[in-house]
């Protein structure tokens, strides 16, 4: 039996199945975590429609768009990395995961640039808001903007860390064609981070 099988599992296959299900359940909790913010966004967008569209138009849409392309691409490289791992080419996997981490870093850099822009223009959450939009709507938009994109950025950071750990272990040959569940699980997490951004992009930038 493979050395990675824990004592209470009967086979590697069974263990992988358990780990996958566990990861999916964890991803479900992540989805619900973001849902509270999306629901708040929906409610306040309904209550302050005019202010929200005005604030949203003030964002740099091209930055959001480029970031979307970057994250989607990083998801693709992670998927290719898993494909390499299933054929035992773990060095190649490590390289592709490294590329994904790099793309994640570019994403964060662009996000930081955008945040800097907001700071300079007083587009800050709640009582710190000094932007041009009258009433409470503009301030609330930026409260939700920073909460959603900030929480997402934290997830990008965590995802990069997870990918880095898995990439290093791949490089050192910890996984092979038979056992590479950690690559798959790290990939699932990264895809979820991408998936959430796919919804953040239109909500925050486009509508």
């Amino acid at each position: 039996m493979h050395s990675a099988v824990a004592h209470h599992f009967e086979s590697l296959e069974k263990q992988a199945e358990a780990q996958r299900l566990g990861m999916w359940l964890f991803l479900a909790t992540e989805i619900l975590l973001f849902t509270a913010l999306f629901a708040a966004y929906g409610v306040y967008r309904f209550l302050y429609t005019a202010a929200f569209s005005e604030a949203s138009r003030g964002l740099e849409t091209w930055l959001g768009g480029v970031n979307t392309l970057i994250l989607v691409t990083s998801s693709f490289t992670v998927a290719m990395g898993l494909d390499a791992a299933t054929r035992g080419r773990t060095r190649r996997t490590a390289g592709l995961l490294g590329l994904s981490i790099l793309l994640g870093a570019v994403f964060l850099a662009l996000k930081a640039f955008e945040y800097h822009h907001h700071f300079a223009h007083g587009e800050l959450p709640g009582r710190y808001y000094t932007g041009p939009i009258a009433g409470s709507g503009g301030a609330l938009f930026f409260t939700l903007y920073f909460l959603i994109t900030g929480l997402h950025a934290i997830h990008v950071l965590i995802g990069m860390t997870v990918l880095a750990v898995v990439a290093v272990r791949c490089w050192r040959g910890a996984y092979d064609a038979e056992y590479h569940v950690p690559v798959e699980l790290a990939g699932l997490y990264w895809h979820l981070v991408d998936l959430i951004w796919i919804f953040v992009f239109p909500l925050v930038y486009l509508i």
Binding site: V72, F76, A79, G187, H191, D194, L195, I198
Partner: peptide, 14 residues
């Protein structure tokens, strides 16, 4: 469009 994209990611990447 976001739902279509999300479905693609969930079905094939995930």
């Amino acid at each position: 469009i976001a739902i279509v994209k999300g479905t693609l990611v969930a079905l094939f990447f995930m």
